[in-house]
Every structure is written in structure tokens, then in C-alpha cells.
């Protein structure tokens, strides 16, 4: 018997399309977010054994190049010294060019390159110097640390 006064009952079928839209958007967001996090890389270096156990006995300290970043009151805040002599241009591009010339002149890619810096020099400039060495083809980078290093640092939270 047909009941009067009531609308026909609909089959309960949920519409999944809007949910899929939202889930797709969130999925794409997380996929892109995860891929951004992977772009971080590394520069590898060795510590010469000037301090610590067995000082200097294990590593041959005959660097092909000694690079030192000296604090400077000028606008750049530092000077680049190569084997004790300041680079006239003083940029990391000129440092990379000079090192590439050394490689062309026959310097071994595995010969050690020592990098040191004054304590007040910004860390990003030390990384830029390491980057210039790697760009020029030197693979054996050594970061020089002074034994006085930690003693001069104030404790921080």
C-alpha cells in the first residue's frame, strides 16, 4: 500500500567527491612539504690533529693551500688570506678562481687544504670558503681549530 503524505525514502549514498577533493589537496601539500625538506646538503671536512690525542703524529701537515679568514673592520667584515697573503679582490669567486688555477697547474685534488678563521668571522663565510675549495676540485678540506677555542667561549643557554 502506498503511504500518502511522506516523500519517497532516498537510498543513503554519501557523496565522496568533496572529501576526495579535500584529501587530494592535503596530500599534495604534504608531498610538496616533504620534498622541500630534502634539499639540505652537506660539506665534509676533516679536523687536523693539532689538538687532541696523538697531536700531529697521525696526519701529515703539509697543506697545499692555507686559507685564513681574517676579521676586518671593512664593509665585508673579513679578508681572505691565502698562504698569508690577502686576495686583492677578496671575494669567494676570486678565491675559487685562484684555487682552480692551482689545480690546473698540477695541484693534487686530494692534497689537504686548511681553512681557518678568526673567532668573530661569520660561520657562513667559512662555509663559503669551503664551497670555493670544493668548486675548485679540492676534496680534502681540513678545518683548523685553535686549542684556545672553547676556553674563549662564554657559556650559553
Amino acid at each position: 500500500m502506498k503511504r500518502r503524505g511522506f516523500p519517497p525514502a532516498h537510498a543513503a549514498v554519501p557523496n565522496l567527491a568533496p572529501m576526495i577533493d579535500v584529501v587530494m589537496v592535503i596530500l599534495i601539500f604534504f608531498m610538496l612539504g616533504t620534498s622541500f625538506a630534502v634539499t639540505e646538503g652537506q660539506l665534509s671536512a676533516k679536523l687536523p690533529s693539532q689538538i687532541g690525542p696523538g697531536s700531529g703524529s697521525k696526519v701529515a701537515m703539509v697543506p697545499t693551500v692555507r686559507i685564513y679568514l681574517q676579521a676586518d673592520p671593512g664593509p665585508r667584515g673579513f679578508r681572505i688570506l691565502v698562504m698569508g697573503t690577502a686576495l686583492t679582490e677578496g671575494t669567494f669567486d676570486s678565491l675559487a678562481g685562484m684555487l682552480a688555477q692551482k689545480r690546473r697547474d698540477g695541484a693534487d685534488a686530494n692534497s689537504p687544504v686548511q681553512i681557518g678563521a678568526d673567532p668573530t668571522v661569520r660561520y657562513e663565510h667559512v662555509i663559503a670558503a669551503m664551497d670555493a675549495c670544493t668548486k675548485a676540485g679540492f676534496a680534502n678540506l681540513q678545518v683548523v681549530v685553535t686549542s684556545k677555542g672553547p676556553a674563549t667561549i662564554n657559556q650559553s643557554s
Binding site: 679536523l47 689538538i51 668573530t120 660561520y123 678545518v143 681549530v145 674563549t152 667561549i153
Partner: peptide
């Protein structure tokens, strides 16, 4: 951070060497 001074990193490097 790129803005830290080399001394802040050097403290850790010195301990690594030690």
C-alpha cells in the same frame, strides 16, 4: 645558523678534535 660566529662552531669542533 649562518649568522653565528665561527667561535661558536669552533667550540664544538675543538671538542670533536679532542
Amino acid at each position: 645558523d649562518k649568522s653565528v660566529s665561527f667561535a661558536d662552531v669552533e667550540a664544538v669542533l675543538a671538542e670533536c678534535a679532542r
